[in-house]
Amino acid sequence: MKGLVIVIGRDLRLALRQSADAWLAVLFFVLTATLFPFGVGPEAATLRQIAPGVIWVVALLAVLLSLERLFLADFEDGSLEQLLLSPLPLEVAVLGKVAAHWLTTGLPLIAAAPLLALLFHMEPAGLLTLLLAMLLGTPVLSLIGAVGAALTLGARRGGVLIPLLVLPLYIPPLIFGVGATESALSGLSARPDLLLLGALLLVMLLVAPLAAAAALRQALE
């Protein structure tokens, strides 16, 4: 537990001192979303209808954008092999790094989501559900993304490869995340979708650190 906190603290400190990286994801999130009114027209009804989908897809792309730097710097400067050789199990170290990634990427996206909801004329009724769904869904994005980032370390086209590996696996959280928000907007219960998102989070909490740690070990061989 203590090791986990140490890793999170270190990665948070690193992220805060290079805060431009964290801002980049949020900026991308807002900027990309503002392209849609130009694409589909500014009619409030249209925007309201596509709001949950746009917010989720853009959030997913913003997370994707931030994945490459998750392990790359540590891989290149030798920190990763030291981390592997520390007494801390590598799975725990991965979990710590993913937690720090979520705190510096997922959480700011959630904070910026109400702004997008406003720009897209989303009904206030859906906002709380949207935020709740993002709270459950964005950690899933970080966890799955960690596997993709770990697998592509040292690859010839690592940055281009990550989306190819990760995006298909992002479809379930996207479906449940949008589903929850749309249910809430149409007056239905968002509970089933939120429960499914929660279940997905639990599964990925178990699977992703194992898979990412295995990928990191073989990347360092």
Binding site: V147, T152, F176, G179, A215, Q218
Partner: peptide, 27 residues
């Protein structure tokens, strides 16, 4: 390296396929 990375991906994928299938049916 390619073999091992792809092997890990395949295992992650096979765990995800039922999840994807279910979520797509749901959708």
């Amino acid at each position: 390296r390619g073999y091992r990375a792809a092997a890990i991906l395949a295992l992650v994928g096979v765990i995800n396929i039922p999840i994807i299938k279910f979520s797509v049916d749901w959708w």
